[in-house]
Design a protein around this nucleic acid. Structure first.
Lengths: 205, 205
DNA sequence: TGTACATCAGTGAACGCGCGTTCACTGATGTAC
DNA sequence: TGTACATCAGTGAACGCGCGTTCACTGATGTAC
């Protein structure tokens, strides 16, 4: 829709997209409201028709990110098919894929310092995405004898932390020098060893 | 040493300390050169006697961080005593302890976007700290039968990623809501399960 | 011990700049008749 | 189909502010004799 001229057509979303681009490029603190406006082809003052300010703009970006993220995770989990184990691993891979494909959203969600309870919508969206990973962990844990079964919330926290660490350290500019292995491999092998530790994969495969 | 008056005495370090405080409080992008100068009780122009600019100041903070970090890791590793396993676990704990005790340094090192190869000194300091974890992983791996032994660099990357993820997600403001478990416990259990997966801890303990 | 002088760390005024935010406005779009 | 009017998204000028950076300077400290 090449709506040009005085009225923009869909400035609200254009501003979010501009913010995402700038966030991905320069970090959550590395851009200004005016830059986002300029990138969207609009005067800084126009932003105030749609957002209360910079914070609100980032919050909207994070919100959209959580929605996409949750959808992706749910799709990958696929209600636990074909097996709880395979579905769990797919969820981990989806995490990394999301971080790769939507770097702006990822940073807005996890590095912008925006608290999840900044708004009810945001809290709900974040809760939904966390829920998928936790459900995957819970289904998986059912295959462990109860007396040595760690809480599902703990398992999902472990995998989440490992995934996040891989993204931050090895899937980006990488502060620790270049990545020794492709991030995908690192996550795959890491989760594999972890699942062996839980007794969910036979030790000799 | 209450040196007051026209000359500061040790402005260079005072500026680094001020920067660290501001970084810990507001993130690597959340402070200005002028603020750091003011916090050190000095005119913005005075900064240029000691640093080329904001970047150089942060780089110095990161450099000092890497030095402390490497020392801490080496101390915790203690040349593999009492056992390779115990020393490895101690190293992981030291990682978390460092992040807790030196938040400004930690952020300057891993979240400021300063590339490690910004200077030779920085690269060397970063290399030294990474070396400790890698050596710990290598010693540990010697207890695994060679044919199923993952490369030491991979093991250390796994543990590093897990530690970093725990720090970022659960040891701070925490984007995913409040931490479900204390970060120390999360790392301890996570590493424990991982080491079981490597066959380094018997599966029934 | 005292005096003259060199050194140099930090001052303070100045600059140009881009920021966030406000405001009355303008002109494109949609609707009623 | 045409005309009059209401709506409202985006303009552009204006503001005060704090930033980074420069510069000639000042005054504390150290040293030579």
């Amino acid at each position: 829709m090449p709506k040009r001229g005085y009225h923009h057509g869909n400035l609200r979303q254009a501003l979010v997209d501009a913010a995402l681009e700038l966030i991905a490029e320069r970090g959550p603190m590395g851009f200004t409201l005016s830059e986002a406006a300029k990138l969207a082809g609009v005067t800084p003052a126009a932003v105030y028709r749609h957002f209360d300010g910079r914070e609100a703009l980032i919050a909207e970006a994070a919100l959209q990110g959580y929605a996409i993220f949750a959808d992706l995770m749910e799709f990958a989990y696929d209600d636990g098919r074909p097996t709880a184990l395979a579905a769990f691993e797919a969820t981990g891979r989806a995490y990394l894929a999301f971080a790769r494909k939507y770097p702006g959203h990822y940073v807005a969600m996890f590095e912008s310092g925006i608290p999840v309870n900044a708004s009810a919508d945001l809290a709900r969206a974040a809760e939904r995405s966390r829920g998928v990973l936790e459900r995957a962990a819970m289904e998986l844990a059912r295959h462990i004898p109860p007396e040595k079964r760690p809480p599902a919330a703990m398992v999902s926290a472990h995998v989440w932390a490992l995934s996040h660490g891989v993204v931050e350290l090895f899937a980006r500019g990488a502060p620790g020098g270049r990545a020794p292995y492709p991030p995908e491999d690192l996550l795959e092998t890491g989760v594999g060893i972890y699942l062996r530790g839980l007794g969910l994969i036979p030790p000799d495969t």
